[in-house]
Structures are given as structure tokens and as C-alpha cells.
Measured scan of single mutants.
Amino acid sequence: NLYFQGLKYMVPGARVTRGLDWKWRDQDGSPQGEGTVTGELHNGWIDVTWDAGGSNSYRMGAEGKFDLKLAP
């Protein structure tokens, strides 16, 4: 699974964008943008601060869902 392989790169400072299971509307800005991981992966959740200004926790394994992917 590509998403599980990418988890080791989901570290503080990593750049991310919305992924396969995104369901959080425009939390990442409008139009959709990139963000920066600000915390360690914990119980399948990870913290992100978006360039647009907001921050929140997103699923990276929790509930079998992956809200994020590494930015290109």
C-alpha cells in the first residue's frame, strides 16, 4: 500500500496536500493548498498547519483512512 509506505516520511516539516480520503472541505484553503506537518504521527492521526492559515489533525491510518499525501 503506497500510503503505508509513505508514512515514514510523514514527519514534522514534511509538506502535504489532501489525499485519497479527504473529507474536510476547504480546511486546506480555497483553492486547495499545501501544508506542513507539525507533529508526530499518533494513533493514526497527524497534525498539519496549512499555508492558508488553519491547522488541524488528520487521519493517516486512523479508521483505515488517509486524508493526506506528500506534496509533489
Rank of each mutant, 00 (worst) to 15 (best):
G35F: 02
G53D: 03
W50N: 00
I46T: 01
G29I: 06
V48H: 01
L41M: 09
G64S: 08
H42V: 14
T38V: 12
G53M: 02
Y3T: 14
D47K: 14
A62T: 04
Q27W: 06
E34S: 12
D26K: 06
D26A: 07
K23F: 07
G35S: 02
E34H: 12
E40V: 14
K65D: 02
L70E: 04
L41C: 11
L20S: 10
A52D: 09
V48T: 00
N1Q: 11
A14H: 04
P12L: 13
A71G: 07
Y9P: 07
E34I: 14
S57T: 11
L2M: 14
P72D: 12
P31N: 09
T17F: 05
V37Y: 01
T36R: 07
Q32I: 09
T36F: 04
N1P: 13
Q27E: 13
W24S: 08
G13I: 02
V16H: 01
L20Y: 12
G13L: 04
G33Y: 05
W50V: 00
T38D: 07
P31G: 08
T17R: 13
N56S: 11
F66Q: 04
D26S: 08
G33R: 08
G64W: 07
D28K: 04
A14W: 03
W50K: 00
E34Q: 13
S55N: 10
V37W: 02
T17S: 11
D26Q: 09
G13W: 04
W22T: 04
A52F: 09
G6T: 15
L70Q: 06
K8Y: 08
D51Q: 03
E63S: 10
S30E: 11
W45G: 00
T38I: 13
P72I: 13
T36P: 02
P12A: 12
Q27D: 10
S55V: 11
E34F: 14
R15M: 02
N1K: 13
Q5Y: 11
P72R: 12
N43A: 10
R15S: 02
Q5T: 13
L2N: 15
L68C: 03
D67Q: 02
W50C: 00
K23M: 11
G33H: 07
T17G: 07
L70H: 07
L68K: 00
G13Y: 04
D28A: 05
K8F: 10
V48M: 00
A71V: 14
M10N: 01
Y58Q: 04
L7P: 07
T49L: 11
W24N: 06
L70M: 10
E63K: 08
M10F: 15
Q5K: 14
L68A: 02
Y9K: 09
L68H: 01
D67I: 01
D28G: 06
G19H: 05
G6M: 15
W45C: 04
K69P: 00
F66W: 12
L7C: 15
R15E: 00
L70I: 10
A52V: 08
S57E: 08
K8N: 10
I46L: 11
W22L: 06
G61I: 02
R25D: 14
D47G: 12
G6F: 15
G53I: 01
V37I: 13
V37E: 01
R59C: 02
A52E: 09
G19Y: 05
V37P: 00
W45S: 00
L2E: 15
K69T: 12
G53H: 03
N43L: 13
I46E: 00
D47M: 14
G35T: 01
G29Y: 05
E34P: 14
E34C: 15
W22C: 06
G54C: 15
R59T: 01
L7S: 10
G54M: 11
V37R: 00
H42Y: 13
G61R: 03
Y9M: 09
N56T: 04
K8Q: 14
L70D: 03
F4T: 11
T38L: 09
R15Y: 02
W45H: 02
W50R: 00
D51S: 03
Q32E: 10
D28E: 06
V11R: 09
N43S: 09
S57I: 10
L20D: 13
H42W: 10
R25K: 14
D47V: 13
L68E: 01
K23L: 07
Y9V: 08
D26G: 07
Q5H: 13
A62N: 07
L68F: 02
F66K: 03
G54W: 09
R59H: 02
L70R: 06
K65E: 04
E34M: 14
N1M: 09
M60K: 00
W24E: 06
L7A: 09
A71F: 06
G33T: 11
G29A: 05
T38Y: 06
L68Q: 01
G39A: 09
A14L: 07
A71E: 07
A71I: 13
W22I: 05
P31E: 10
D26N: 11
D21V: 05
V37L: 07
I46V: 10
R15P: 01
Y9H: 12
E63P: 00
V48S: 00
S30D: 14
V37C: 08
Q5M: 09
E40H: 14
G54T: 10
T36C: 11
Y58E: 03
G53C: 06
D51M: 03
W50S: 00
A62W: 12
G39H: 07
P12H: 10
N1I: 11
A52K: 10
T49Y: 08
G44C: 04
T36D: 01
A71H: 07
V37F: 02
G35Y: 01
D28I: 05
G44T: 00
R15G: 02
I46K: 00
F4Y: 14
F66I: 06
E40P: 13
N56W: 12
K8A: 11
D21L: 02
K65V: 04
A62C: 08
E34T: 13
H42M: 11
Y9Q: 09
W50L: 01
L68Y: 00
E40T: 13
G53S: 03
L41Y: 10
G64L: 07
A62V: 06
G61K: 00
T17E: 10
D21Y: 04
G35E: 00
V16W: 02
M10W: 13
Y58P: 01
G39W: 03
R59P: 03
D28T: 05
W50D: 00
R25C: 15
